[in-house]
Design a protein around this nucleic acid. Structure first.
Lengths: 165, 165
DNA sequence: TCGGGATTGATGCAGCTGCATCGAATGAGG
DNA sequence: CCTCATTCGATGCAGCTGCATCAATCCCGA
């Protein structure tokens, strides 16, 4: 226990922290300058728009987005306040509810993707060849798995083909 | 303008966001469970302890840590409140001040490094060979440079040999 | 059928962040 | 010696996050 990390590992750790915060900042700034809400809103709207009938249980959204329960609850509040989603009662489980994306929500999601994808290209795509992007993904994946690796018995399903962070 | 990113780039972006937040969470949790303050405190204490006479202008600290000015100001408040640092008047520039690390501050920094380094090993070092860590660093570096790349004419000096995120 | 534990979602509170702004001090130019 | 732009650091405010907890409901097992 308490084996010291190599300087290579430490250096990778430092860069991982610094680079992502820098790149994330840049992307968020671009979004904001284009008059859009934070990325988290996009992520939520995307998950909702992808869902079978445009609606999801908060608890599902929470699992997709990997954010804590109270955070989900409040994010939904904000989306509802802005008319981007609406809460619907869940008849089969009266504790719960469904959150349904509205037309305005779908539309905002699409408009945001324009600015968002441009930012990804600007800050990531244009700096790496596709082959290098794949290498980077592979290396990151090795870190990502099983940090806490909570119980997710069936399938984690972090969809790749469409962006969701 | 507005060229779309490749799916490879988008995938790398998603992983970069997800993996770092996951790994950072894990490390912060370990630190917290060991009864230590947040990582930002460590970073600040480390910078101070490294400085020539254990003191730095807030504006220097700000540049080292890449955090905004007001954030630095408040972080210093907290360190001072906890007796980990003290503010000293700056005679040569009466607008400014010096922040000096205390003995308690130096000691805490060292104790934190024990838990911190163990966490880095656990969540990064043990998952990657040194060669892979170097590859990862290299790929990340290509993203990190020149996001906003503010003016830093002389030397950026992001020291590597010792951890500072 | 009943009781206790688990799950779902909301919320009060404290702390932190970002933004804008402020006052003090500096220093370059006229 | 003045003036004005700049730099340094602090702070009020709003919004967000994490933590703990709550109420309601559900579900499993006796």
């Amino acid at each position: 226990m308490k084996r010291k990390p190599s300087t290579e590992a430490t250096s990778a750790w430092i860069r991982l922290m610094r680079v992502q915060s820098r790149v994330l900042d840049c992307v968020e700034q671009d979004l904001k300058k284009a008059g859009f809400p934070p990325l988290a809103w996009y992520d939520a709207l995307l998950e909702l728009s992808r869902a079978p009938s445009g609606e999801l249980r908060p608890v599902e959204l929470e699992r997709q987005m990997l954010i804590p329960q109270y955070s989900t609850s409040r994010l939904i509040d904000r989306l509802v306040d802005e008319g981007l989603a609406s809460r619907r009662e869940c008849k089969i489980d009266k504790r719960g509810q469904f959150v349904e994306i509205t037309e305005a929500g779908r539309e905002l999601q699409k408009r945001m993707w324009g600015a968002y994808s441009a930012a990804i290209e600007k800050y990531v795509g244009s700096k790496l060849s596709d082959a290098d992007a794949v290498k980077l993904s592979g290396l990151l994946d090795r870190l990502g798995c099983s940090c806490g690796e909570m119980k997710l018995p069936p399938a984690v399903h972090v969809s790749e083909s469409t962006p969701s962070r």
